[in-house]
Design a protein around this nucleic acid. Structure first.
Lengths: 211, 211
DNA sequence: TTCTTGTTGTTGCAATTGCAACATTTATAT
DNA sequence: ATATAAATGTTGCAATTGCAACAACAAGAA
């Protein structure tokens, strides 16, 4: 179940979709979607299938930003897909519900289900803000070492442990930190050699105190 | 009027505050606030006065992150004030309304005024996400030049013009881009010398085509 | 298995950057 | 008006980084 539809079922769900003028669309595999909506302000629920977000950087090469699975939530303006540098494409046949953000804000229904939907969405946006702020905190560090340490600090805090597990590959971590992978690899080695951390696969143990 | 209270007045406003268990607190000038709430999830409305957000960086020096005026909205977890590195302090006698985010999400009132409040807050969070995404887009550029160009591009897009006006000082711009001020100054000079831009005070004219 | 694709570690080198320091100018407060 | 604080421009230099290239390895598909 999509988190935006938490606690909304059956007849209420139907009424909600009607009220928000939600469009349920079906896209074939490898279809570009939203290309005509990039200047709108829409929220999309991926009901089934798989979708990827691609960015065309200024050199002309395409970078895969994210791959979204069932129940993912994505969108345009408010979710970072600002402009024509981006492309959204299905990787599999996909069913997507598209909702205009303005319909959410301007509806005057004030029913149990619209209320629940607003709360669900608010929870989602609040979480998104937290994620973004955490990344910004890291990205504003001036050196790769400090970026890594800031990242470790956040991970340690959220898991409440000085042993942390990388949720994805080092290659993707380098993307997340917005640094060169090989330079990050070098810096990880330095931290290891200097005794600050121990790494084994995706497990990192912090050996300093003030993390 | 605070934007979170848009379209909520009089008796409804009173009822809303009651329902959300909002606390209206008064703080003397130069008082640390929220220090006991940093692990909670609260939203604060600055009704009157002035407040600053300070970050203690790892070198021990304090950086003023933001100065907030009347009607500002700030908070803890969901608004980036994650941990003990931050301090929030009044610069003047200030009146602040504090609302627990959980009370917003979990209330079951479903009235005209709670509904309006949810929409107002949602609008605010959506805007915040957009701002954050824009900044992240800039911060992930690998060189100062590319950061500047990405920033210019966004400014040009939002003002729909290739003449843009910096909303704040170059010193603060350097902070926003998370680069050294003097290095940024050097790069601005390069862009100027190479004929890509013209700068006069806070006015920048973009002289290249694919912005 | 074999092929393909993606991840990781490593290193030399050139380019970029942060840092420190200083002079000027501009803004703000008294 | 004068003093104080903040913003800007500039530069040398050392440190950090991105980039390119390659080898080794792992994972997954055919």
């Amino acid at each position: 179940m999509n988190e935006l539809l938490y606690n909304i079922t059956g007849r209420n769900l139907e009424k909600l979709m009607l009220y928000l003028e939600a469009n349920s669309l079906f896209f074939k595999k490898n279809t570009a979607i939203l290309s005509n909506l990039l200047d709108e302000n829409v929220i999309c629920l991926l009901i089934s299938g798989k979708v990827q977000i691609i960015k065309n950087d200024f050199n002309g090469n395409q970078v895969i930003m994210e791959i979204l699975e069932k129940n993912a939530i994505f969108g345009t303006t408010i979710f970072g897909i600002n402009n024509s540098d981006y492309e959204i494409k299905t990787l599999e046949d996909s069913k997507i519900v598209i909702i205009d953000f303005n319909n959410i804000i301007s509806n005057t229904a004030n029913t149990v289900y619209t209320d629940q939907f607003l709360k669900n969405l608010l929870k989602f946006t609040a979480h998104k803000i937290k994620e973004n702020n955490e990344r910004i905190e890291i990205l504003t560090c001036k050196t790769i070492r400090n970026k890594l340490l800031a990242y470790f600090k956040q991970m340690a805090k959220s898991s409440n442990s000085r042993v942390i597990y990388l949720p994805y590959s080092l290659t993707r971590l380098a993307d997340y930190l917005a640094v060169d992978r090989s330079a990050m690899s070098r810096e990880l080695k330095n931290l290891k050699d200097e005794g600050f951390i121990e790494i084994k696969d995706k497990k990192i143990k912090l050996k300093y105190n003030d993390y």
